[in-house]
């Protein structure tokens, strides 16, 4: 047999707009590894990439849509979920994925988040939680841990943050998980599972933001934050989401917390349609 003559490339390059790479993310930023896990999960879940659409909002995490060579849309700030809702209802065959940041999905887009979960719209949301608004210089937001320093909490944050898995589980999500970007294999498997599961799936991905968050919180390099994940993470599948609150230096509970069945918005719509159109 002959040896392959093709030029070797990174296996995920086929899903990347390689002309835009190197990307703009800082050295050690957690968005890159999370993106890689998502791209490998498409193959793991054996999806047809032509039927996968990625929607992002604004932020460093929101730039994912621009680097992925799939049908993708970069919406306005906070509006990835409403756009994805329209996309899914207009073309139910699509596998719709929202890939965006904590600020985008939970702060300005928080209302859309709870209502998308409540309506159980069939989509997968991958939320990069770096505890702040990275792109605009590191302001605090609704996911910033108590006492964490940021551009707008220079003496420490005194606002209670959201516990995201608890929030989305209470709102009605049928699949809820949390991983850090250090849990590469688990994250990839979890995304693959969420992609094939009907209903609203939410995966919180903790990732370092050394440039504007880490540097203010004694984690100046991405590596420092990765090591802190390594020391603090505890895998607890099936943990009650109300017990998985995050803090500045406490344990990080990761795992799959919710995996239940519930009719999706589309199912309920079809049922109603059947009922009212029956002769």
């Amino acid at each position: 047999m002959t040896k392959m003559l093709t030029v070797d490339t990174n296996p995920v390059d086929c899903y990347l707009r390689v002309d835009r790479i190197p990307h703009i993310w800082c050295a050690g930023c957690g968005i890159g590894p999370a993106t890689g896990c998502f791209l490998r999960a498409i193959d793991r879940a054996e999806l047809n990439p032509d039927k996968v659409a990625v929607v992002s909002g604004i932020g460093c995490s929101g730039r994912v849509a621009g680097y992925i060579k799939l049908d993708s849309f970069h919406t306005t700030h906070g509006r990835a979920l409403p756009f994805a809702t329209g996309l899914k209802l207009g073309n139910p065959e699509l596998n719709v994925v929202v890939f965006s940041g904590d600020g985008d999905i939970v702060a300005i887009g928080g209302n859309h988040l709870i209502h998308s979960a409540r309506r159980n719209i069939d989509m997968t949301v991958i939320c990069i939680n770096n505890f702040n608004y990275g792109m605009t210089g590191g302001q605090m937001g609704p996911t910033t841990p108590l006492d964490a320093r940021s551009a707008t909490s220079p003496y420490g944050n005194f606002e209670y943050p959201f516990n995201l898995p608890y929030l989305v589980a209470a709102s009605g999500a049928t699949y809820v998980a949390r991983w850090t970007v250090l849990h590469l294999r688990e994250l990839e498997r979890s995304i693959a599972e969420a992609l094939t599961k009907p209903g609203f799936s939410f995966i919180e991905v903790l990732g370092p933001c050394p440039t504007v968050y880490g540097r203010r919180n004694k984690l100046p390099r991405g590596m420092d934050e990765m090591r802190s994940y390594q020391e603090r993470s505890v895998i607890r599948d099936g943990a009650d989401p109300k017990d998985v609150e995050l803090s500045l230096n406490g344990p990080i509970v990761v795992g799959k917390f919710v995996d239940i069945e519930r009719p999706t918005l589309w199912d309920c719509y079809q049922q109603m349609l059947d009922r009212v159109t029956k002769p």
């Binding site: 392959m4 070797d8 990174n10 296996p11 790479i21 993310w25 957690g30 968005i31 890159g32 490998r40």
Partner: peptide, 16 residues
């Protein structure tokens, strides 16, 4: 898998 830059990868020598 871990590289944030998609900048390191394996080349299998026995690929046929």
């Amino acid at each position: 898998a871990m590289c944030p830059e998609f900048g390191i990868y394996l080349i299998y020598e026995d690929k046929e």
